[in-house]
């Protein structure tokens, strides 16, 4: 049963990745990343109880739901409202191509993760493969999107992958390190949001192509 739930969560994470790859609106992307954040936060609850303290698990789950599911999406929504990026910016690669890419990467990581030696560490090999797929998809989003909000979301997907991997090797690493990483992430996002506001102030848009040229 526990294993089934883990598989379900991993699949939903993969589907939300594909959703992020296929959606053009920042509002929809923010919803997607919030959903993914909440899903991830449930993962610590499945850790084998003999290896970590139950209190640690609960604190981690609650904190990450708050940060990934509520606070960061809230900030992102606020910044999009401020800058009103209404225009869809066309990505360097089309949405359909991105979605096919996501599908192939997800399936590829399912396939290869079974052959890697460290899979015995994880709570489920499925989670590890979802994490690998997320990592690649996160980088892909950062690389192919012009909209700065979409790039931040790509960064978050990447970070989420790290979170899953961290949980996977939790038995050999204290959980408070995870908590520390979470807080770092929050600080990072706040700085990015401030930066986006400034970029918008200077360039009047958030197309990162404008950043190629130095602004006096």
């Amino acid at each position: 049963m526990q294993n089934n739930l883990l598989i379900l969560i991993s699949l939903l994470i993969i589907l939300s990745n594909i959703f992020l790859l296929g959606s053009s609106r920042t509002g929809a992307m923010i919803r997607g990343i919030a959903f993914q954040g909440v899903l991830l936060s449930l993962l610590p609850l499945f850790l084998p109880s003999e290896s970590v303290r139950i209190l640690d698990i609960i604190i981690l789950a609650v904190l990450s739901i708050a940060i990934k599911g509520v606070i960061i999406p809230h900030y992102l929504r606020k910044v999009t409202r401020n800058i009103r990026t209404k225009k869809e910016l066309h990505p360097y690669l089309g949405y359909s191509v991105s979605v096919i890419f996501g599908l192939l990467v997800s399936y590829g990581s399912f396939y290869f993760i079974g052959k890697l030696p460290f899979m015995y560490l994880s709570i489920s090999p499925f989670n590890t493969s979802a994490a690998f797929a997320s990592m690649i998809i996160g980088m892909f989003i950062i690389a192919t999107r012009r909209n700065i909000i979409a790039q931040i979301i790509g960064y978050l997907v990447f970070e989420n992958a790290g979170f899953i991997l961290g949980i996977s090797i939790a038995s050999s690493q204290p959980l408070f390190i995870e908590i520390g990483i979470l807080l770092d992430l929050l600080a990072g996002i706040v700085i990015m949001v401030v930066a986006v506001n400034h970029i918008h102030l200077y360039f009047d848009n958030v197309n990162t192509d404008s950043l190629e040229r130095l602004n006096k």
Binding site: S23, S24, R25, G27, A28, R31, K86, K87, E88
Partner: peptide, 10 residues
């Protein structure tokens, strides 16, 4: 509602 905005925009 994203679907409304997607329909109206552009």
């Amino acid at each position: 509602t994203p679907s409304v905005l997607a329909r109206f925009d552009s």
